[in-house]
Design a protein around this nucleic acid. Structure first.
Lengths: 199, 199
DNA sequence: GGTCATACAGCACGATCGTTCGTTAACGGC
DNA sequence: GCCGTTAACGAACGATCGTGCTGTATGACC
């Protein structure tokens, strides 16, 4: 029996969280303040907080949306490719594209949140870790598949390759965000490609 | 005509900035507050700010110290090695060691500051960029020397190798800080080693 | 059409933010 | 020993922080 339909409330929540993601990607998930976001949305602080209970829940929901946006942008379109190297290459293409034109104004949200909360403890740190662990496992599984079918020149532990792949992405994000030089994207793409060179 | 000798004032400043670096490495350079740092140092807010003029100058001085600590830990001890691959290997050894046991409780300060300020503009962003540009040039120069004397299996643009080297370091930092798993350090070390494989 | 549930605004709370002020105390130069 | 300089303090400023509480208005349900 809400004042608005369930669909409308969900839509409002979505708009709210999109604004929260955009804001937090620039000033950080901790720098995100209730007052500023409420201003941005032209609503009152209490009305905004009422949607989530408290600030931490807002932060967690913001993080959740950012994770979903990453998944939908990078991973989702790549699963049409067959598992293994082809899918890996598609993921990396998407990944670099995402880094060059992120869904957020402030660069990869996950990277920012990871660095921001790596030295603190609490629910947000845990949520970041869970999300990144999941992503790491996805990469590992694809790499393992590609290795098993002999598609990769590289051998050894799939976790090693996943680690390096992720490092290249994080490094590319940092470099590109700081210098806004598209050569960072080219270098990231090349580094990923040489890591995934066919057998 | 200060109340204390110049040496004493410098020492105080050093103690202050060490505490600032430690604090900021955990809660971020922007999350660093005058009140909290003053509490940590058991002095008044006004006394603390008086040493630097305002908060931004304190942040800049904190960043400067962190950069100097990185330089002294990673680069300085490596220059006893001859320029080229030997020095590069020494730098990377030091670099991974620094990432595993940073001078700061919150992981690599430069990486944190870079991510924190990459989407904002202002003096701090600029200072971070200057510091990282300088480091990138140091790496490039060493790589170019090593390539010129045929010490590296890799060929191509030294800037590409410097980029990847830095990406591995940043990625290692993120992974290790988030998961506290020493395997991240091993993987980082191996990835750097394969990048710098001898000819 | 009356009743209920609820999303939101408005306001106030205590805390903390960065900054500024006047005062105090300690030091070097005369 | 006096004077000028200066670092540090305590207090206060307005602003903003996150969080409660209350009133109100609106849509859903009977």
């Amino acid at each position: 029996m809400p004042r608005r339909s369930v669909a409308q409330v969900d839509a409002d929540r979505g708009v709210t969280l999109r604004a929260a993601v955009d804001l937090a990607s620039v000033i950080g998930l901790e720098g995100l303040t209730v007052g500023r976001l409420a201003d941005e949305l032209e609503m009152s602080k209490s009305g905004l907080v009422g949607r989530f209970g408290n600030k931490q829940n807002l932060q967690l929901a913001t993080l959740e949306l950012a994770v979903e946006m990453f998944r939908a942008t990078v991973y989702e379109p790549a699963i049409v490719e067959p598992a293994g190297r082809a899918r890996l290459v598609a993921i990396c293409e998407r990944w670099i594209g995402y880094l060059g034109e992120p869904c957020f104004p402030g660069g990869c949200f996950l990277t920012s949140a990871s660095v921001e909360f790596d030295a603190r403890e609490g629910p947000i740190h845990d949520a970041v870790r869970v999300a990144l662990d999941r992503w790491q496992r996805v990469l590992e599984a694809e790499i393992a598949t590609a290795m098993a079918s002999g598609e990769l020149a590289a051998d050894g532990d799939p976790a090693d390759v996943a680690f390096t792949l992720n490092a290249i992405a994080v490094g590319t994000n940092c470099d590109y965000q700081l210098r806004r030089d598209p050569r960072a994207l080219q270098r990231g793409r090349r580094a990923m490609a040489s890591l995934l060179a066919p057998a």
